[in-house]
Computed example of a mutant assay.
Amino acid sequence: MIKKFLTAFGEYFLLLGKAIRTPQKMSVFIKLFFREINDLGVNSFGLVVFTSVFVGAVTAIQMFNNFSSSSIPIPTPFIGYATKAVLVLEFSPTIISLILAGKVGSYIASSIGTMRVTEQIDALDIMGVNSPNFLILPKILACVIYNPLLIGLSMAVGIMGGFAAGELTGNWTISDFTTGVQMYMPMLFYYYAFIKTIVFAFIIASVPSFFGYNVSGGSLEVGRSSTQAVVWTMVFIIISELILTQIILG
């Protein structure tokens, strides 16, 4: 089992070595890059906004309930600060990335896997095209560049959800929540969040690409590969978060 895992890990880095090279034709690469921006990033916009609004609202309500049940009176503005801290440190970079791993990862694995089983990748190789570079590099760059924008949007929209929850429940005022959001939080926390996001984006693009590129068989294997890709992407995201948290915040 360990030998099989190490072999797969070596093949993964070998594939990345072929993918991360200067494109053979820049005009084609730019066209593919913007297509991936649309497929992987823009099409995830609605899901990120919808999820972030409701989770931001739920987080704010939970903070209010916890502070209210505390034996020590805690000022209402701390609801805004606590909501912001949860969104920045954990929810937006990690949970949204896990959600995107399911949506984006399955798309990448299935699209490349379908090209493999229909012999389109073999045709590219015969024509002398660097197929890993042609198929994988645009996806990696699109995720690494666009995902931080989605995570920043998630943070902002989640805080807006906290504002909305206060208005709907009447548990806190907008001014109190705004005061809490404006409280100082170390810049290291923001660096930590976006460094995690970039690493997660790389994983979300590269791991499913590896599974899709190495599919063998038919359509059934493509489905299985997509499932494995999502599972392993989530596993690597969780492991990398543990490592990054220890390195940056430890």
Score class of each variant (00 low, 15 high):
V129S: 03
L87P: 09
F45R: 04
P23G: 06
I37H: 00
S226C: 05
S131G: 07
S97K: 08
V49Q: 04
P132L: 00
E11C: 11
A109D: 01
L87Q: 10
I136P: 07
I108G: 02
P208C: 01
I74K: 09
A123L: 09
F194Q: 01
C143L: 11
E241L: 04
V129Y: 01
K25D: 09
F64M: 14
I239W: 11
V28D: 13
E36L: 11
G46W: 00
P73K: 13
V104N: 08
K31P: 01
N43M: 13
A142S: 14
D39E: 14
L141H: 03
I2C: 11
S175F: 09
T114R: 11
P73D: 03
L150E: 04
S70E: 04
K139Q: 09
I151Y: 01
I126H: 00
L98N: 02
M115C: 05
V58F: 08
T245A: 15
M234Y: 00
Y81C: 06
M1S: 14
S110Q: 05
T178H: 08
P93C: 08
I203R: 12
A165H: 09
T227M: 07
S68K: 15
G223L: 05
V86M: 13
A8V: 12
I121V: 15
G170C: 12
I151F: 04
T83H: 02
L249F: 08
V157K: 10
A60D: 07
I20R: 03
G166D: 06
G212D: 02
M160D: 05
L32A: 12
